[in-house]
Design a protein around this nucleic acid. Sequence first.
DNA 1: TCCTCGTGCTGAACCGCATTAGTGCGGCTC
DNA 2: GAGCCGCACTAATGCGGTTCAGCACGAGGA
Lengths: 363, 363
Amino acid sequence: MTAPGEAARRRPARRPTIKDIARRAGVSESAVSFALNDRPGVSDDTRARVRRVAEELGWQANSAARALSGERAGALGLVLARHARTLGVESFFLQLVSGIQEVLSARKVALLFQVVEDLDTECALYRRWWAERRVDGVLVVDPRTEDPRPELLATLGLPAVAIGGPAGPAPSDQEPDAARPPLLPTVWADDARAMARVLDHLHGLGHRRIVHVAGLPGLAHTARRIRSLRTEAALRGLTERQVRSVTTDYSDAEGAEATRRILDDARPPTAIIYDNDVMAVAGASVAAERGIPVPAALSIVAWDDSALCRVTHPRLTALVRDTPGFGRLAAQELLTVLDGGPPRTVQGELPHLEARESTGPCG
Amino acid sequence: MTAPGEAARRRPARRPTIKDIARRAGVSESAVSFALNDRPGVSDDTRARVRRVAEELGWQANSAARALSGERAGALGLVLARHARTLGVESFFLQLVSGIQEVLSARKVALLFQVVEDLDTECALYRRWWAERRVDGVLVVDPRTEDPRPELLATLGLPAVAIGGPAGPAPSDQEPDAARPPLLPTVWADDARAMARVLDHLHGLGHRRIVHVAGLPGLAHTARRIRSLRTEAALRGLTERQVRSVTTDYSDAEGAEATRRILDDARPPTAIIYDNDVMAVAGASVAAERGIPVPAALSIVAWDDSALCRVTHPRLTALVRDTPGFGRLAAQELLTVLDGGPPRTVQGELPHLEARESTGPCG
DNA sequence: TCCTCGTGCTGAACCGCATTAGTGCGGCTC
DNA sequence: GAGCCGCACTAATGCGGTTCAGCACGAGGA
């Protein structure tokens, strides 16, 4: 004698298989397979009947069986290599993931998401996933200037799409697919034009001394933004003494530290551009600490918007990107590649600058 | 004639199978299986030889094949049901996930992580994962007072562990496993004692009028914290007019809005406790807007620490939990259940209060 | 009328592993 | 020396799909 709850735990409902469907529909298992996969070989009548029975039984393909014969795991992978310290303060990744999944879940593709400590572990994970046939492809984030991943993925034959910029050596020119095609199909943002918008804004407000607090030096987009800043500054007649970049690890600690050093300068800048929201908030906090009024004496721009930028006082001017849209685009591209489509390099929507209270005329 | 890169894409390295190992080691496939799975049936000599060959070939079990015969998918699932609005500003989840994965990756178990819009979609996803045999079990977050999930998972026979508190109706007493055992094994935090610590701190500083800006009313831990606040307040001789809770959706917007209403009161409180970091920062920002000095005129406590609390000015006093540790604990429990262990309800480490500049003597 | 062809379906092989039922063999017992 | 047992291993089967070869049958063309 067992309680109903316990019984449920002991003898879970059996999952229906195509065999069950075949029996109930009075056809062979192959016919069922054809019917459910939209392949020719069955009449419309039979197809409809099989579909109905499958519906009734609540059948869903066993992903393992399908993976075993069909060579498709029905899953994609995403690895995030981050130190524990810089984890979780940025809104970027969850947003990205949510965009990715919008596309994937419509196609019943699962996402394996894993956070690891470093790049080596990330590579090891790709190898394991490949050997275990866990995933059909992966989305690669945080492309670097020196990046072992495109090479690795190519030799493994694991389809991949890079997010955020082409991995591999920085191209001499601004178009990533110009001279040397990127090793991985890529979904990227036009950082050059985005930077132009930021500079237009600041330059228009009269700012001439600007510092860019960038992120990790190894990342491809960091290099691209630094390069863009230099180019755009030159176009506006600003020298390298007036406009410069410093790099950090994206953490609030280094963002604050960099800000302190910058403000200690003999001739401190009148505007600072931060490469993420967390550092921008940290920087604003340092300014507040020192009694430097924002934006009267210092303007602040955050690259990437989030609730963070809106809860500080004053609210931060930010470069707004459609991050979920970015994720959708990337997922779409990877699925296209898996379906045999051409590996392409596509550009996400151009970010726009949301001017708030942290930027103002150069006092 | 194809370029080497293209060749690699066309003919990816073949993944070794136990058949390859068997051939090279000169034994049958079954012997290989025995050897690699630590089962009796092969001599130590053969076992070692097989292991060596497997190592050489870089063999890893095909997860699909193993799932198909072994009845184990080798993966767990975690679904996060959140509106896009409240997504990504909290550091809690990425930290939790990173803790979970520490345990899982050591056992070569993958994590399927999915963000969905609402509870119904979450339930549908469990059904699908179950039918597709994608996962061996799931971790359930955000337990609610009225929660359909324990029931659903029980009927599906999908093993699960709840994180953050027992799902299901609130127990009359503070111990969740007292009168009526929770439907799901649970890893939870002792919110009652944590709340006691917060009140100790505030009461000790002389605060008598305190408002608690809680999270979503449907969540089990929200109810628990509200109840705890009442209990602890009563123990200190505070009335319900002096100490009260209001609920929100955890977003910065509602956090700010609630703060405005609270401060508009005829007799506003001298201290506010926020149920997450984002709302605490938003609240601090509202205070700044109104020129209310923190902590001189208003003390602020954040339930859950993050970089956020450290980058504001003043830095926020926060209740610090070991969130990754919580994730590790939950993953461990679920694995134990999967291995046939008893479903238990365990408690995470007690959080401690990190006093910073946002709390001070009641002016 | 015979042959061909296309349609609609079935049977069987296969994917890579786990598992169970043998099998051969050496040693031990009586 | 016959019988038995345990060890180390092999052969066969199945998991739940997909896929391919083949088959029956009716229509259409020569």
